[in-house]
Nucleic acid binder design. Structure first.
Lengths: 349, 349
DNA sequence: ATTTAGCACTCTCCGAGATCGAGTGCTAAG
DNA sequence: CTTAGCACTCGATCTCGGAGAGTGCTAAAT
């Protein structure tokens, strides 16, 4: 860990703040004026030279000012940053938005949207990874003479249904009996397990009810199983905000970024990693390890349900962002989302 | 309608083809060489001058070649264009992709994705406007002692469910009886209608079953009713392809475009309009009437289910696109989607 | 009457200076 | 250790001139 004396720290902090606010390399004269240290530009130059040797700042070319390096930003957010409190009005708005949405899927989408609106960057929410679901209950409802609706319920209270055409007409009683049989026999096993057993049974006797249940399971599995659900477990909003960011206005950077958004893999890894961290995580530029996010920073925070971390959310923006404003927004959003999730317990049974 | 002699037509056609393929203004020498008309550049210049007077081409500045105007493109696609047949291999691929997807929502998403992949532009699919659903059937399933699952089926075979907490425990028989009552009493009415009646009934007696059904209806309505479904009825894919298009590589153009993609309103209007047209529609640049799509062309085709047009799909790309390749792709995709929809009748019952 | 060659003209697109301003690094004095 | 002074470097901007592309016009040819 780099050590700096107070003066160097103040100058680094001031330099980064100036650079974040106007995006231009900061010269010694300007820095001397803003730092309130009563130093001449020449002295500031000496300190800047030291900071450059430490790898915290760099100059784009001989006669420009200095800009922070990734390490500079890292040092800044780790030890120099004082975050601003969030605006009360924004807070109220957020609370309104999030507390009025009952459907959990839409809630996450709204959260992502909210993040992007508040920060003017892209908002992102990782949808909680689904643990393997256990089969609890199946019910059959007769829709039309040869059409049965199968309703499958898992132990975590999620429901999925599928209309299945049948070979013959089933009576109400037959359907109820079949359902009871399946429920008693297979309740508590994982969906995959039940599917396997069913397929075996079907080899032996070719009872149609088995086929019906297998079909229902196949559909349910598609929705519940983690693997098959892949690719759609992160909600990204406000990408177009990043077109407005002057730091990213080069087509090739944008291209890289939007490709990352499309494949989602890198973003997913990143969010997943940050889920295991307590509190805010900040990934600056390429230090995240993902080339595609090289020109960006990502600020994330995990959110909870029932006191357990189930996902993360965050903001993707340029490395040159106002961390002191973005961080509290992400932080508060995570808290509010946790609240909103907890206040609708019936959703998860 | 503009009238041109054969020579002028050939030259205009050749000019547009050259311009579409290399994106540079076309000069008289080059045009004379490519047009196979055995004319000198000077003659070609005379013709070009006429075409410019007619507003079909223009020159960016005195000493560049000519490029087509919007009217030029319009004339080109209306009267000069010979579309290429689609590659057999691409066709097979498309067929594979579309015929293996049973879920209609995912099918539309895949279709959009496919359009974007084949054209390297953005694909877009308008999700059929839902006609007002009629209530057909409700069933109640006991999940836990004080938790009832309500399953609501509409006359077009769509199913929606909701877990509802109850004040007391209901027996299997009670639930079946209640369901039968509701089904007999309200079957065939629109969801909105049923909701209205239920609310009235609830004023008079405060039977809990009424409340349960009303809750179920409220949720179902959210999913089925057209109004509430607004905003999410167009599937856009491959936006990031447009970042690669050299014609659009100016940030402000992209910004306009991506804003349009986000709000979706203009796109929706456009697609909706084209649904009422038979066959391919082509909107070139600003002639669509939407500023946000000013730098783009949109090629659309309606698709059908049961012989009835229920939606449209299309491609959004730069005005300088290979219409002779894009048009058949859109055309074929629309046909294949129509087929795919028809071959899964159980989805819509 | 149409087509063509010839030619002057107009623009854009570089690349080569020239200039300016910002900011640095070094040195020597305070 | 700090500061003033100063030479130096580099990018940004401007201008100028030449090269290249392409046009429009005119007058001759078909």
């Amino acid at each position: 860990m780099v050590k700096l004396d107070g003066r160097a720290e103040t100058l680094l902090k001031t330099l980064i703040e100036i650079y974040i606010s106007d995006g231009q390399p900061v010269g010694s004269r300007k820095l001397a004026r803003y730092a309130n240290l009563d130093l001449s530009p020449a002295t500031v130059r000496n300190v800047m030279s030291d900071l450059e040797d430490l790898g915290l700042i760099q100059s784009p070319h001989t006669s420009a000012g200095r800009i922070p390096t990734q390490q500079g930003y890292r040092f800044f957010v780790d030890t120099l940053l004082k975050i601003k409190p969030i605006r009360q009005k924004a807070l109220d708005e957020m609370q309104d938005t999030l507390s009025t949405e009952a459907d959990p899927k839409l809630l996450l989408a709204k959260t992502s949207e909210l993040l992007s609106q508040l920060t003017k960057f892209a908002g992102v929410v990782l949808i909680p990874g689904q643990r393997t679901s256990l089969f609890r209950q199946i019910e059959f409802v007769s829709l039309a003479p040869e059409r049965v609706l199968a309703i499958l319920v898992t132990d975590d209270g999620r429901v999925q249904n599928r209309v299945i055409p049948t070979d013959r007409v089933y009576s109400q009683n037959e359907l109820i009996e079949a359902a009871n049989f399946f429920n008693d026999t297979y309740g508590g096993n994982s969906l995959a397990e039940v599917r396997r057993i069913l397929l075996e049974e079907m080899q032996r006797d070719s009872d149609e009810m088995h086929r019906i249940m297998a079909t229902a399971l196949a559909v349910a599995g598609k929705f519940f199983d983690e693997e098959e659900n892949g690719g759609e477990n992160v909600v990204l909003r406000g990408e177009q905000n990043l077109l407005n960011v002057p730091d990213l206005c080069q087509i090739d950077k944008l291209q890289k970024l939007f490709d990352a958004f499309k494949t989602k893999q890198d973003l997913l890894d990143l969010l997943d990693r940050s889920m295991r961290v307590n509190g805010i995580s900040i990934f600056i530029g390429e230090e995240s390890g993902y080339r595609s996010l090289g020109d960006c920073s990502v600020v994330t925070a995990p959110y909870e349900h029932d006191g357990e971390v189930i996902g993360t959310l965050g903001v993707v923006g340029p490395t040159r962002m106002s961390y002191d404003e973005i961080i509290p927004v992400v932080d508060v959003t995570a808290r509010l989302l946790s609240c909103a999730l907890s206040s609708h317990p019936e959703k998860y049974q």
